[in-house]
Design a binder for these strands. Sequence first.
DNA 1: ACCGGACGAGACGCCACGTCTCGCCGGATG
DNA 2: CATCCGGCGAGACGTGGCGTCTCGTCCGGT
Lengths: 207, 207
Amino acid sequence: MPETKAPDASRRSERSRRAIFDAALALVSETGYAKTTVEGIAARAGVGKQTIYRWWPSKAAVLLDAFLDLAARTAEEAGAAQGQTELPDTGDLAADLRLVLRATVDELNNPRYDAPTRALAAEGSTDPELGARLTAALLEPQLQVFARRIEAAQAAGQADPAVDPRLATELLVGPLHHRWLHRTGPLTHAYADALVEHALRGLTPRP
Amino acid sequence: MPETKAPDASRRSERSRRAIFDAALALVSETGYAKTTVEGIAARAGVGKQTIYRWWPSKAAVLLDAFLDLAARTAEEAGAAQGQTELPDTGDLAADLRLVLRATVDELNNPRYDAPTRALAAEGSTDPELGARLTAALLEPQLQVFARRIEAAQAAGQADPAVDPRLATELLVGPLHHRWLHRTGPLTHAYADALVEHALRGLTPRP
DNA sequence: ACCGGACGAGACGCCACGTCTCGCCGGATG
DNA sequence: CATCCGGCGAGACGTGGCGTCTCGTCCGGT
């Protein structure tokens, strides 16, 4: 059963694909995700609706690919060919974590990223399939940056080897995302620094 | 300018209000938030659409009030007259935190709460006004439970008095919500316990 | 030169939205 | 007890986006 559908990807128009990405990101930034429609994206991109529905199942899927494309392009021009494959390691764990966490703060505060990220997080929390794609393509690589740096610190004796690097990562990123998502307080570099310090030191008083 | 609208709340039908809450929660649980419609809620509740639009601005607002009503009722039958005003204090900070965090885990794992909570979190992350109401009515009281217990621990010398109780709370709740929202791993009592331990102890190795 | 399939454009039925207009009914007032 | 006011259930209505479809057109590979 060939599922009655089989578009030929080799014939796909790169021009249309890019135009759709640009239109989707622009509309979401300008008018918000809720008011953005597939028809609107198609019109802005100068593209037929069918061209969108041929390649994506939903508005959210379009935005996800558009955002991944944006992230890949900005990452490419700002560093190595691939995403954030490498991580800083100056030998000072706290300093390195502060650096990356501050960068995360800046990213979440950037209006260009904030609106699409919120929309995708919202959609992903409701739609498990989209959420899985979002996590795998966007969130997981970012978490790996922290986890690998922490593993290196463990090997160097700078961090407790008994701690699961994954849990340690969530201890840093979780509060940050929580405060951002629920607008429960300001997202500042100072907050990122405090998070690093307390995650490393713990809350128990020192003798 | 009376804004051309002024429904008389004293004449409101309690019967219809409850029926709308029941219908909204049932439909969201059965068919999901996305497929739930205002028309569907009205039909299921045996109510005119106008009765819903007279009292709520949107589907999300209805669900929020319905969920608050549900939470208030279950909290009332399970404890004091008001919400979670009081918190356990056995003198053992770690044990008390484990208890509350495990309860949070159970709540997020309960399908009856999971679906509406996800929907509200999604809507609230996109709609700032609804998000503010959600945070104030639901999230903030829960965070206060942790914060107050931590403050008491600081007064008793069980926790570092220099740490902001609010930040300490986020250190516990943030990772939990993060893992739940992005389905990034299993939500278990063991995870709650590990969170408490590492938040208290920190990641730095002990000499 | 040909041919197939993606393309832009837009028509189509469908459905939920949000507004409106009916009588109806219930509980407050005189 | 009679009156009246306003929320009530019901549903009609215009609007607009959804997702599918059918056109020619155009372009790239054979």
